[in-house]
């Protein structure tokens, strides 16, 4: 049923409504003018000495204002409806994606458990399967935390634990931790400190920002993974440049990628995993830090740079 309410369907309704409205407006003007003319003619015939003053324009203008008001409300309703349709579509995509993300590790765990219970699996293989199941449960755990954290961040229920750090020092530390966690080679992430200052951050939340950005770089790099991170200060801000050399982001998509549930669908994209929540979450965390995040990419195949701006703290 939802397909009936597509954008084209709404557009047709909107155009029809506008035609009806214009017809009504035309009818109103016609009715008013013809009535006025009759009134004038009859008045002249019956009693020519009656001098008709300038016509009373109030009902005429009032009618037009009313009709314009109606049209304006129609535009508002139409706009609202379209936003709603777009959100519903994004939400449907999110449900499909989250189902995929939840069911995939679950299927894998079920498969390994059934394999272990029905087959005589050699000890070496058993160890491999158990490790795989642990990785799958970690993936499920991460996904569930993401959903819960986002819900908390949106309702401002998360307790941020802000502390003051030296920007270069803390970023270098967090990047090393993430590199270990993602099992990246030592040279995969290069870090440059071009200027440092004190920033107030919630370390756990900020680690999630970096984890998400690294995870995206891994997912969307087809060749050898390489990430450059540099930190500098500019006026009263610390700027963090996070650059990868992956598939990049088409210019027209760049404004959308921080939206909740938004995912880019393109047949050149090497990975379909994801919920459309990662970058939304990153943006929300940065916003909680009173900072800003933006993206630069010259287009497909040209890598991506995320720029995070955080205020320098004087504490």
């Amino acid at each position: 049923m939802r397909k009936r309410y597509s954008l084209a369907y709404n557009l047709v309704i909107f155009i029809l409504a506008q035609i009806v409205w214009l017809a009504l407006l035309g009818l109103w003007i016609y009715w008013y003018v013809s009535n006025y003319l009759i009134y004038e003619q009859v008045g002249e015939k019956v009693s020519p000495q009656i001098v008709i003053d300038t016509p009373n324009v109030f009902p005429f203008v009032g009618g037009i204002v009313l009709l314009v008001g109606l049209s304006f409300s129609m535009v508002l309703i139409f706009r609202h409806l379209n936003v709603q349709i777009r959100l519903t579509r994004l939400y449907d995509n999110f449900i499909a994606n989250i189902t995929h993300e939840l069911k995939s590790p679950l299927s894998s765990i079920q498969l390994y458990l059934e394999t272990l219970s029905t087959r005589n699996v050699p000890a070496e293989k058993q160890k491999e399967f158990i490790d795989q199941m642990i990785r799958d449960t970690a993936r499920l755990q991460k996904l569930i935390s993401t959903i819960l954290e986002i819900s908390a961040i949106e309702s401002n229920k998360n307790k941020a634990n802000f502390e003051v750090y030296d920007s270069c020092e803390i970023l270098n530390r967090l990047l090393k931790e993430s590199a270990d966690q993602f099992r990246l080679n030592e040279n995969t992430i290069s870090f440059r400190c071009l200027g440092s200052a004190k920033i107030s951050i919630d370390v756990n939340a900020f680690k999630m920002v970096l984890d998400n950005l690294i995870d995206n770089s891994i997912k969307y790099t087809t060749d050898k993974l390489k990430i450059d991170v540099s930190v500098k200060t500019f006026l009263n801000k610390v700027e963090i440049y996070f650059t990868d050399y992956g598939i990049g982001i088409p210019v027209k998509e760049q404004k959308n990628i921080f939206q909740k549930f938004y995912r880019i669908y393109d047949e050149d994209i090497p990975n379909v995993k994801g919920t459309g929540l990662g970058l939304y979450w990153v943006k929300e965390i940065i916003r909680n830090h009173k900072g800003k995040i933006s993206v630069r990419s010259e287009g497909k195949g040209k890598g991506t740079t995320f720029i995070i701006e955080l205020p320098i703290t004087n504490k």
Partner: peptide, 11 residues
């Protein structure tokens, strides 16, 4: 595309 599932199925 899920490596863990594919490995289990392959086995």
């Amino acid at each position: 595309d899920e490596e863990s599932l594919a490995t289990g199925l392959e086995y």
